[in-house]
Design a protein around this nucleic acid. Structure first.
Lengths: 235, 235
DNA sequence: AGGAATTTGTGCGTATGTATC
DNA sequence: AGATACATACGCACAAATTCC
């Protein structure tokens, strides 16, 4: 009876659908809190059945990108509150949340030091040091190493979100990241106004990948445990 | 056309089914690794449709109690696979990975101390203290507070995975959790063999929820930064 | 080696219950 | 109370993986 092929050797339709909607959320075409059209309407628009569409929505639900309310509708739920730009910035004030901003302390293109873990192909890297704020309270220092193989930046290229800068200026996108959280000490270049040199602190190492094999970025963050915590929400 | 009532004011049929099967696993009527009858057969036996039965099986799958193999069958999985363990256990050795195990130091049902954050409804809680290992290396201490409102445990109820214990013994499932990572000091009850009292360490607070509003579990983990890191992989 | 049988996965359509507005 | 929207339930047809002969 139905003539539509189930597979063209591709991924299941409901997975494709779910990923399509994820991209629309990422691209900002769907806003936080926005209500999606009714399921029957969406199913018609995407040329699929309600059951399949519902399976895709269920997938987004488990991924935490959607809130489904019976009798009301489906609502976009962006993981983090302040703009999707900061979706990957997981430091929060002790009592939750906080609007993130950053001040650039320095930007230099330098040879990679020996004591850095391996990332990228080049012997050089862009090193950015920033002070990070939540609600205008300084809560962390950050040192970002971007492999020169993907290009170099200068000061007036920087915008609010580094990932956004990478996309606009260097035309790549971070698709994967790994954080390693432990304890450490504020680095020697810490401004005295932030913390005494060598004061104990939380310490985050992050590797970031594009589609390629090796990570293209490595960063270290030192955060003040009296002001901020590293938060992870599961499921 | 069909005349069977959808609801008798009770839980959805697929939930009832899934819980029925959980009880059969619990009672030992279904053995580890055992293959279930074909879905069509089960559906007929339980007097339900295939779709509904499949939803119940999918539920058991996400709970880690079932392995579903296309073309082969559905298999009981009593012991969690290492992958499942890792999913909820985010501490790793410095050079990655490690097989997690735990030794119980104590288990008591006590009145909740004042200095604990709020969780659950009861004034009492089960307190479990454990030493955690990765590849037989002690890397952390853990103190778990389980609200007495969901039931209490005793020592011989415990298995490797606490979440599995909750499911099998107390019949609830953790659906959401939040970790807050910072720095701290090993607690007074730390065995000297693990770390000197008050030594600096990584510190994790975790709240865990069922479907209900308030979290039912609160735990603290103190980990040795010389041996382990807290890892988060994004996307 | 290969083909048939078995079993789960995907997709479609419909009817009805229940929550929200 | 009525309309709208999501949730549950049923049944069927075909695809894909596995198993068995």
């Amino acid at each position: 009876m139905s003539s539509t092929p189930k597979y063209a050797g591709a991924l299941p339709k409901y997975i494709q659908l779910s990923e399509l909607i994820i991209r629309e959320i990422d691209a900002g075409r769907l806003m936080d809190g926005e209500r999606l059209p009714p399921e029957r309407e969406m199913a018609r628009a995407y040329g699929t059945s309600i059951g399949t569409l519902r399976k895709a929505l269920a997938d987004l639900d488990t991924k935490g990108l959607l809130r489904r309310v019976q009798g009301s509708g489906n609502y976009i739920r962006k993981a983090q509150s302040p703009a999707g730009l900061y979706a990957m910035f997981r430091l929060e004030l002790l009592d939750g949340g906080g609007l993130p901003t950053a001040d650039v302390l320095s930007l230099d293109v330098v040879e990679k030091p020996q004591d850095l873990p391996g990332f990228g192909q080049s012997a050089y890297a862009t090193r950015i040091r920033r002070t990070r704020f939540l609600n205008a309270v300084a809560i962390a220092l950050e040192e970002i190493w971007l492999d020169a193989g993907v290009g170099t930046l200068n000061l007036n290229m920087l915008s609010e979100s580094l990932y956004q800068t990478y996309l606009k200026r260097l035309h790549f996108w971070i698709t994967r990241a790994e954080d390693r959280v432990s304890i450490g000490q504020f680095p020697p270049w810490t401004p005295e106004a932030i913390a005494p040199r060598g004061a104990p602190c939380g310490y985050i190492e992050r590797f970031s990948w594009t589609e390629a094999e090796a990570p293209v970025e490595f960063s270290r963050t030192w955060f003040d445990p009296a002001r901020a915590v590293y938060v992870q929400r599961l499921k």
